[in-house]
Computed example of a mutant assay.
Amino acid sequence: MKLKERKAIKEISSKDKEVVLAGWLHELRDLGKVKFLLLRDVSGIVQCVLKDKKLFKKFSELTTESVIAVKGVVKKAAVKSPEVTRKEIEIEVKELEMINKAETLPITVTEKGIRIALPKRLDYRVIDLRKPRTMAIFKIQSQIIYAFREFFSSKGFIEIQTPCIIATASEGGTALFPVRYFEKKAFLAQSPQLYKQLAAISLEKVFCTVPVFRAEKHNTTRHLNESRQMDIEVAFADDFDVMKLLEECVKFIVKKVKERCKDELNILKISLKVPKAKYLSYEEAIKLLNKHGVDLKYGEDLTPEAEKKLCSLFPNSIVFVHSWPLSLKPFYIWPKNEKVSAGFDA
């Protein structure tokens, strides 16, 4: 069996006469005269049937999550298993090869009737990544970043890579992780803000996808010690130009994820809608929130309660709040006048 002839499960055609597949053994079923196995690769799961008695001994030696290769004939089928992604076909196995036999694993991949706690899943993350739901999240994340790059590259933006070790804070309001940089004290970057602004005054339009680190308590829904930030900076543009770009970008990303990740969205049972956009000045937002029972005065920052209220008032929308008081924004935000900044939140 030549693995260089291997085909991805997603790419199997009903017109294929014979295929070579390789992946992980997802599940085994022994019905006596006929044996079944579900084979999984990163593109999907297909049912394989063993009818040749010469293969039964090899079948008896198999364990779930073993790495195997099969060569077989493509047959039309109507597979009912909800885990199988190629329900319209099955593979009648002619050759079976064990590439690497799996021992008993500390967590299962199928999770039929078993729900494994998150701490244990994280302890064995390398195995947890094999779960179709976990895999779906990573595939969608990959498409989000790809679509982000695709959108801004098409607009003439230049991608930059900003430093992750910095000498001082680049953004106010967040705590820093200190690190030793030889004989000097340094910090993990909590934002690419200053670097992208410095780049924009020469390169005009830049974007980046960078790791950021914030020394905040992370046991809330609002904080992460480490995350990936997708960021842009534009010269010769005002705040509304930038907001419009971001609105178009979010809509583009959602549209592309809907087009390219249909199977993954189905696995996660998520129904995406391309969002609308709502623009409010800070003053309009405060008045609207007061009207709906949220007590905020002009000059105060929006609370989590206020942000949730705005989202509930404009469902399935990107809500932009612009024209903030200058006193609420950091030094690097462009001032429109002595009192109002060009800063915005979304």
Score class of each variant (00 low, 15 high):
236 F>N: 08
202 S>L: 11
104 T>I: 12
285 A>F: 11
191 S>W: 00
109 V>Y: 00
230 M>G: 02
176 L>P: 12
6 R>S: 14
247 E>C: 01
260 R>D: 10
276 K>V: 01
259 E>N: 11
130 R>A: 02
172 G>R: 14
298 Y>Q: 08
296 L>R: 08
140 I>Y: 03
117 A>P: 01
196 K>I: 01
276 K>L: 10
52 D>N: 15
20 V>P: 00
286 I>N: 08
294 V>A: 09
244 K>G: 00
331 F>C: 00
121 R>I: 03
251 K>T: 04
303 T>A: 04
335 P>E: 11
346 A>C: 04
226 E>A: 11
13 S>I: 04
116 I>R: 01
65 E>S: 07
144 I>M: 08
124 Y>H: 13
75 K>S: 11
280 L>Q: 11
43 S>H: 09
41 D>R: 12
305 E>P: 03
225 N>T: 13
63 T>C: 04
119 P>L: 03
11 E>F: 01
54 K>Y: 04
148 F>N: 09
178 P>F: 07
3 L>Q: 05
233 E>K: 03
295 D>C: 06
50 L>F: 15
310 L>Q: 06
249 C>Y: 00
272 L>C: 03
86 R>N: 12
122 L>D: 07
55 L>G: 12
31 L>N: 15
180 R>V: 12
151 F>G: 11
266 N>A: 15
327 S>D: 07
52 D>F: 02
210 V>M: 13
17 K>N: 09
198 L>P: 00
153 S>I: 10
196 K>Y: 00
300 E>C: 06
53 K>G: 05
193 Q>V: 05
221 T>Q: 08
51 K>H: 09
222 R>K: 13
77 A>K: 06
119 P>M: 04
158 I>G: 00
24 W>D: 09
143 Q>P: 00
15 K>L: 14
274 V>N: 03
132 P>F: 00
9 I>R: 05
65 E>D: 08
124 Y>D: 02
257 V>L: 05
126 V>D: 03
331 F>V: 02
26 H>K: 13
261 C>I: 07
113 G>T: 02
49 V>H: 07
202 S>Y: 15
334 W>T: 15
197 Q>T: 05
9 I>V: 13
201 I>C: 11
89 I>E: 08
190 Q>S: 10
24 W>H: 12
23 G>T: 08
326 L>C: 02
153 S>E: 14
125 R>I: 01
221 T>L: 12
80 K>N: 14
154 S>D: 14
254 V>D: 06
319 V>K: 00
294 V>P: 09
226 E>D: 07
205 K>L: 03
306 A>G: 06
202 S>V: 14
120 K>L: 13
307 E>Y: 03
303 T>F: 01
138 F>C: 05
